[in-house]
């Protein structure tokens, strides 16, 4: 792939991702509503919400939290760019971890007990899903010999055939990242939670919009990562990613929110065991 091509891909992805992310969030709300027997909002509702947030008057509870919101956005964007440039998956996930940390620090920098406890829980969430993502990258390394996205795209056979248990573990991480039940402990999709909006509590207006758009990038990035599990041909991978997305919505609707201790237990118990088991199986069979 030439440099021009990869630049075109990155710019295209950067431009398209908010659109795709917004539509996915719209689909999420519509489908959730239909599963609950409701009409649901129009598909474009996330964009209306975004527009409304941008148009709100400016109010911040602490300047540091604004800086951290920008940090979250820019770091997510960096991770996104690196991913679509076909770079090292480990670097992508580390930068994504930094982004998550920025969100937590933003919440820590305010004096609200809600935001602070939300930040505590956000860090716990990172503790739960980061090992999965990093170990998944390691598993991909074992399979392809490299950590880069390029190598996966160039590999001959779909990863899913060799790493099915890793895929399951990544689904757990996706659930945590999407803030869906039973893992919506730091900031729920809807505010009926003891911490209201957790880490987002002290954000409003355009900074909340910024976080929202970063969240869309993050969603697209994670789904793209899932699509990598079937990169030949890529459209199957995209379908699998969409399937994973709908599976999360389904699980969200059949489960209550559980406690953080359960989340850490489940993600480590299921996630890490599955990945390790997968790697052991691979080495035994190979």
């Amino acid at each position: 792939m030439t440099l021009t091509w990869s630049l075109i891909i990155v710019v295209g992805a950067l431009l398209l991702a908010p659109l795709v992310g917004g539509v996915l969030r719209g689909l999420d709300r519509k489908l959730t509503a239909r599963l609950q027997g409701r009409m649901g909002p129009p598909l474009a509702q996330p964009f209306y919400d975004f527009g409304k947030l941008v148009g709100k008057s400016h109010s911040v509870s602490s300047r540091a939290s604004v800086a951290w919101a920008w940090a979250y956005f820019l770091l997510t964007l960096t991770a996104f760019t690196l991913f679509f440039l076909g770079q090292d998956l480990l670097v992508v996930f580390f930068i994504l971890a930094f982004a998550g940390g920025a969100l937590a620090f933003g919440a820590f920098s305010t004096r609200s007990p809600y935001a602070r406890l939300g930040a505590n829980r956000e860090l716990l969430q990172m503790l739960a899903y980061e090992p999965i993502l990093l170990l998944a990258a390691v598993a991909i390394y074992f399979q392809t010999g490299k950590f880069t996205v390029h190598s996966v795209l160039e590999a001959g056979e779909p990863l899913l055939l060799y790493l099915p248990l890793v895929f399951v573990a990544v689904l757990v991480a996706l659930g945590i990242k999407m803030r869906k039940s039973p893992f919506d402990i730091a900031a729920s999709e809807h505010a009926h939670q003891e911490l209201v909006r957790g880490v987002y509590t002290e954000y409003s207006g355009r900074h909340l919009a910024l976080i929202e758009i970063a969240h869309w990038y993050e969603l697209v990035l994670l789904l793209a990562f899932i699509a990598l599990f079937w990169a030949q041909p890529l459209w199957v991978g995209v379908l699998i990613a969409l399937g994973a997305f709908f599976l999360e919505i389904w699980i969200d609707n059949i489960a209550a929110r559980l406690r953080w201790s359960w989340m850490v237990g489940a993600s480590w118990g299921v996630g890490i065991t599955f990945i390790v088991a997968n790697l052991v199986l691979l080495s035994v069979l190979a």
Partner: peptide
């Protein structure tokens, strides 16, 4: 149901 985050049950 809503207090433990089970939105679909709440709607039901």
């Amino acid at each position: 149901a809503d207090s433990f985050g089970f939105e679909s049950l709440f709607m039901q």
